[in-house]
Nucleic acid binder design. Structure first.
Length: 191
DNA sequence: AAAAGGATCACCT
DNA sequence: GGTGATCCTTTTT
């Protein structure tokens, strides 16, 4: 079943870890979540909430269980799930998936037949699943278009804790071990 | 090693 | 209203 808002309204690192192995669904696309990162509060200089204007990253300041999709590097969308209470802006970045359904269309969207190259990176998976800014601020506890479920989820896997990627500017927060991925799963962006 | 390319922001005029 | 710098990346050299 889909997670309730209570599931997402908790400590971001716990949510990030527990989302591993869960099934992300978008239309007829679905995949196991294999890699996540936590972004927590205005003190975390890697988080948009610390340096972007509130109205630009407003979903992070709202209730948990909503998407926050943004665009960067002139070509990539990133998919985040908002966590914690509204007063605390925080989110989990979905970094990698293991494709389950809709693989034929993912191959078209990504223009590669290498299944291990379809969704193993935050920009790759949004391209493969056709996620863009129109998917910003959607309530995934209510939506039937995009949601996360534990039905058919992976079980009995190890979790590796690591530092986050691509945030060298984040000063004292750049070495936080806030990235999580499934041990021995080949569908992760980096090990 | 670096280009690709759009959105955003701080700062200027 | 314009400029320059930056970015939670990917791809190709």
């Amino acid at each position: 079943m889909k997670h309730t808002r209570n599931f997402y309204s908790r400590d971001t690192k716990d949510v990030a870890k527990e989302l591993l192995g869960m099934v992300l669904v978008h239309g007829y696309f679905s995949g196991y979540i294999t890699e996540t990162e936590a972004y927590i509060g205005t003190e975390d200089k890697a988080s948009h909430a610390s340096w972007r204007k509130k109205e630009t990253c407003f979903p992070m300041w709202g209730p948990a269980g909503f998407t926050y999709v943004y665009f960067t590097y002139g070509m990539h969308h990133m998919l985040n799930i908002v966590t914690e209470q509204p007063e605390l802006p925080a989110a989990v970045l979905i970094r990698s998936l293991e494709p389950v359904t809709g693989i034929d269309t993912m191959i078209k969207n990504r223009n590669t037949e290498n299944v291990q190259n379809l969704t193993t990176g935050p920009g790759k998976l949004t391209q493969a699943l056709g996620i863009d800014k129109s998917h910003n601020n959607i309530d995934i506890t209510e939506s039937d278009l995009i949601y996360i479920t534990n039905e058919g989820a992976l079980e009995n896997f190890g979790i590796v804790t690591a530092t986050r990627i691509g945030i060298d500017y984040a000063e004292e927060h750049k070495d936080k071990f806030w990235r999580y991925y499934i041990k021995d799963n080949p569908f992760v962006s980096r090990t």
